Amino acid sequence: GIDPFTGEAIAKFNFNGDTQVEMSFRKGERITLLRQVDENWYEGRIPGTSRQGIFPITYVDVIKRPL
């Protein structure tokens, strides 16, 4: 089901994660935001896939912030 505490964002740019914990994505992908890790990073996942990880806040347009 849908978790009411998650947020939502759209990727503004392609992001290629450097490490296992970073999640790569392509511009235009819809991302579920799980939490804000710190002032620069979100943790999120791509709905319908097993992809999950952290990524820079500046790479996405936030539609709804996670609670």
Rank of each mutant, 00 (worst) to 15 (best):
E43N: 04
G28E: 03
D61R: 11
R30A: 08
I63W: 05
D18H: 13
D3A: 11
G28P: 00
R30C: 10
N16M: 12
G17Q: 05
I10E: 05
P56V: 02
N40M: 13
F55Q: 00
I57F: 05
V62F: 06
G44F: 01
G7F: 09
R35P: 01
P66Y: 05
I57C: 11
Q20G: 11
R30M: 11
K27H: 12
N14K: 05
P56Q: 03
G17N: 04
T19D: 13
F15K: 01
E39I: 09
R45Q: 10
I54N: 05
V60G: 02
R45V: 10
N14A: 09
N16W: 15
V60Y: 00
K12R: 12
R65I: 15
R51A: 04
L67C: 15
V37S: 03
G7D: 10
I57L: 09
I31E: 00
P66M: 07
E29C: 03
G28S: 05
F15I: 01
L33P: 01
M23A: 02
V62Y: 04
E39M: 10
Q20C: 15
L67T: 15
D3P: 10
W41D: 02
F25M: 04
I57N: 07
T58A: 14
W41I: 05
F13Q: 13
Q20I: 14
P56N: 03
E29N: 02
D18F: 11
R45D: 02
T32M: 08
T19L: 10
D38A: 09
E8A: 09
R35S: 08
V37K: 05
T6L: 07
S50C: 14
G1L: 11
A11T: 03
T6I: 07
V62L: 05
I46Y: 01
R35F: 08
F13L: 12
I54E: 04
I10W: 06
G28L: 03
E22A: 07
T49Y: 02
E43Q: 07
Y42Q: 02
V37A: 04
M23R: 01
A11I: 02
A11K: 00
I31V: 06
Y59G: 03
P47R: 09
I2P: 14
D18E: 14
S50G: 12
D38F: 08
D38N: 12
N16E: 12
K27G: 05
G48L: 07
R65C: 15
I54S: 03
R26W: 09
R45H: 10
T6E: 11
F5P: 08
I2D: 15
S24H: 05
N14G: 06
R45Y: 14
D3G: 09
D18N: 14
T49V: 03
D61H: 15
R51K: 07
E29I: 02
F5K: 13
V37N: 02
I2F: 14
R30T: 11
V60D: 00
T49H: 03
R65V: 14
T19I: 08
R65H: 15
R26G: 08
K64N: 06
A11V: 02
F15C: 02
A11R: 00
T32V: 11
P66I: 12
T6K: 09
G1F: 09
T49G: 06
R35I: 05
